[in-house]
Amino acid sequence: MKLNVNPTRMELLRLKKRLVMARRGHKLLKDKQDELMRRFLAFIRDIRDLRQEVEKGLTDAFSRFLFVSATLNPQDLEEALSVPGKKLQVDVQSETIMNLRAPVFTPSVEGEVICYGYGNTSGELDISLFSVEKVLKKLILLAQKEKWMDLLADEIVKTRRRVNALEYVLIPNIEETIRSIEMKLSEMERSNFSRLMKVKEIVEAH
């Protein structure tokens, strides 16, 4: 679509400068998009393994806990787990990746996961809690990486939209407008030239 500008030489020069700028911007954004994609794919590979590990750990912990919750009296289980012995604190800071502010979770854990006596509880309960404890840091790391991946994905979408806007809208429009102004200008030039020729003919006839 042609831009709504006056077909003047001045405007032509301005549009040509804009075209150079748009092409440079397009190239930079295209490079950024490629790098974002590269990092995104690397993240996916990384996260896939971590997620599998976390899911395996949690499945193990939950299936054990399921049996424990069924074999212990509900009152015993409720009492045993009523006051947790372990405290988890997650410190959130941020880091810049590809000009994005990404959160960095730093967990700090204190205390014992086993917060009950050995009287009315079972060893399977210990193992299920150990399984959760083992997977907890990985779970937090996974949350951090998935958040990063989420931010990267958003950025990729935004960058792609900008690249596409430049590539399929702005640059073609400027090019079309430039072509149209150039045609208009050359048309005007030709018409001026023929007018001058006509004037010259009339002057010479007299």
């Binding site: 009523s82 006051v83 012995g85 014992e112 086993i114 917060c115 009950y116 006596g117 050995y118 009287g119």
Partner: peptide, 14 residues
């Protein structure tokens, strides 16, 4: 007053 100490003390006493 740790939960483990509560359980252990009361189990032993019981």
């Amino acid at each position: 007053p740790l939960p483990y100490v509560i359980d252990n003390t009361l189990d032993k006493t019981m």
